[in-house]
């Protein structure tokens, strides 16, 4: 019995290591087949995932694996070559010119508050005052006498950068009560807190407004926050959703990139609540 026990232990471990080696070999083999690996921004991932599925239907010899993990991930992987295409949901900076950038869609940033809040519009200066802690009560900007809960995004997020650049606020000046990560996190926070103000993706916010979940989009100054405004270019707060490649990509990758920019995917872009690039 004891021998059987020892034997089974050894066999189990041998099996595992053999399998690992075998799969290791197999993995390096299948790398030559037409597999495109896309990694990066969690904002873009659902969209590219759907585009990839549609693309695979017409190109059965190509397999596109979409992975997520954040924009910095896409950037790093594209540089090291562990992916073919990186997804980055912000604009290129000057030291990122080594990569080829392709914009497939745009995402706008809008301010949201709870529907219980009587405010419908805020001027630029008022928004700056709220986010820098100069104004801490809604009554100071024409609302009810309640404290403002300022919701901000975590450092490095693309929406934060768009927001700060437009309103010319330095990151150190922000006085936030809550800091969040994803759009849905912000939306859920505002739904649960009548005094909160937050900025999220306009497309997502518009969808939630239509569903009547308890939030509303604020107009910034005289500009209406809406998908239509973003499309016409009247709405200034937006960020590009980019695909990046390094060096000269293979024909398969190029064909896929071209497909991502074609009108054939515009319905998918809209269904994911983004705005197509004209």
């Amino acid at each position: 019995m004891k021998k059987i026990f020892i034997l089974s232990l050894i066999i189990a471990m041998a099996c595992v290591s053999a399998a690992t080696i075998y799969w290791h070999e197999f993995a390096s083999q299948s790398a030559d087949s037409e597999k495109v690996v896309v990694t990066g921004s969690s904002t873009i991932a659902p969209l590219v995932s759907r585009i990839a599925k549609r693309y695979e239907e017409t190109h059965p010899d190509v397999r596109i694996d979409v992975q997520t993990g954040g924009s910095s991930r896409g950037l790093a992987d594209a540089r090291t070559g562990s992916c073919d295409v990186g997804m980055i949901s912000r604009e290129a900076t000057e030291n990122e010119a080594d990569l080829t950038w392709v914009t497939i869609a745009k995402d706008a940033v809008g301010l949201i508050v709870n529907t219980e809040n009587t405010i419908t519009t805020l001027a630029d200066a008022e928004i700056v005052a709220i986010y820098t802690g100069e104004v801490t009560n809604w009554s100071e900007v024409g609302g009810a006498d309640r404290p403002i809960t300022v919701v901000n995004k975590a450092a490095g997020r693309a929406t934060l950068k768009v927001f700060l650049d437009y309103f010319k606020i330095a990151p150190e000046e922000i006085r936030a009560d809550i800091i969040i990560g994803d759009n849905q996190h912000g939306i859920k926070t505002v739904i649960g807190n009548p005094d909160a103000i937050c900025y999220v993706s306009v497309g997502t916010a518009e969808y939630e407004v239509k569903r009547g979940t308890g939030i509303k989009l604020l107009d910034i100054g005289n500009i209406e926050s809406s998908i239509a405004g973003v499309m016409s270019g009247a709405y200034p707060l937006s960020r590009p959703l980019n695909l990046v490649t390094r060096g000269i990509p293979s024909d398969t990758v190029l064909a896929f990139l071209e497909y991502c920019q074609s009108t054939a995917v515009h319905d998918l872009i809209r269904e994911e609540y983004f705005v197509e690039v004209q």
Partner: peptide, 13 residues
């Protein structure tokens, strides 16, 4: 780590 890793590069990462 979870909040900032997704967008961090260089020394921040």
């Amino acid at each position: 780590i979870a909040l900032e890793m997704a967008y961090a590069t260089g020394d921040h990462r």
